[in-house]
């Protein structure tokens, strides 16, 4: 029983980070119908950037995080301007392929700049675990979860309570209508990519502080894929639920059945859910009036 609870809670905490990465995917998909295969690599890039600021430049966290976020913002703008804007009006598949290319580009770029071995972050939070009765939790995971949830909350408020959020939702729905009402669709794309890159950098910092960063961190994107598909590609709350689901399923399967099953189990659950709800749990159904 204790074991079960331990795995469950660890799963939830890890799921928080997955949710954050899934959120980046959802943002880009919502606004441009492009599935961003490079999201995991943005996480890795963000991780390396924050590592450089923290470990090499020796900046404190309160200074490195804003700098890293501003850099991520600029990466987002550059990606939109150089890689995606020429593809506006072209088939979506072309843009999706470009994100695949971006994924390789970021990997290569990181290896060139930082080389491929693992970098360990300086200690940001105490390493001593917290004990809740018989359950042992790492402080890292706890903090990671809290930060994820906070970022999630902020972005949700941004989308549902601010004018810019409303315009982004409008553009996500129909580019031509948005343009006919004077919304700059290019501006919306640039903003989404910037936010997605910032969210990824935050994810990179959180994951890096647990295990360190190396170029394989980009594979974290693979965890976010089942998360967004479970939650529904367009749904922000869906990304949260999806991320948590993946974390829990992975934790339970790895802990209770077999450690190697942890990687596969989320995908099995994904297949099951898609069998019954093809649009994901919270995805938008196409509205069809009868």
């Amino acid at each position: 029983m204790t074991n079960l609870l331990q795995f469950l809670i660890t799963g939830i905490l890890v799921g928080g980070v997955y949710a954050l990465i899934a959120l980046g995917l959802v943002l880009i998909y919502k606004s441009s119908r492009v599935f961003n295969f490079a999201q995991g690599d943005l996480v890795m890039l963000g991780g390396f950037v924050t590592w450089t600021l923290l470990a090499q430049f020796g900046l404190p966290l309160w200074a490195s995080l804003p700098v890293a976020l501003v850099l991520a913002w600029m990466v987002g703008l550059l990606v939109e301007r150089l890689a995606l804007r020429p593809l506006i009006g072209q088939p979506i598949l072309a843009a999706v392929m470009v994100t695949l290319a971006l994924s390789y580009f970021f990997k290569g770029f990181t290896i060139l700049l930082w080389s491929a071995y693992r970098r360990v972050f300086p200690e940001l939070v105490p390493t001593a675990p917290v004990k809740l009765g018989e359950i042992v939790l790492s402080q890292h995971l706890l903090w990671t979860f809290v930060v994820s949830v906070l970022a999630f909350g902020l972005l949700t408020i941004f989308f549902w309570r601010t004018k810019t959020g409303l315009l982004m939702r409008a553009a996500a729905e129909d580019h031509q209508v948005a343009q006919s009402m004077g919304i700059s669709v290019k501006g919306v794309f640039a903003l989404t990519w910037s936010i997605a890159a910032m969210v990824a950098t935050l994810g990179g910092l959180l994951l890096g502080s647990i295990n360190g960063v190396d170029p394989t961190l980009g594979a974290i994107g693979l965890k976010a894929f089942p998360a967004v598909l479970v939650g529904g590609l367009e749904s922000i709350p869906g990304a949260m639920i999806g991320g948590l689901t993946v974390g829990i399923v992975e934790g339970l399967a790895a802990g209770l059945i077999d450690p190697s099953l942890g990687e596969i189990a989320p995908f099995l659950v994904l297949l099951l859910i898609l069998l019954f709800k093809p649009e994901g749990l919270f995805g938008l159904k196409r509205i069809e009036r009868v």
Binding site: L166, R169, A170, E173, D174, Q176, V177, S180, L284, I287
Partner: peptide, 10 residues
């Protein structure tokens, strides 16, 4: 535009 292009999910 023609065809009543409302933003459906809003």
């Amino acid at each position: 535009m023609e065809g009543r292009r409302v933003l459906e999910h809003l």
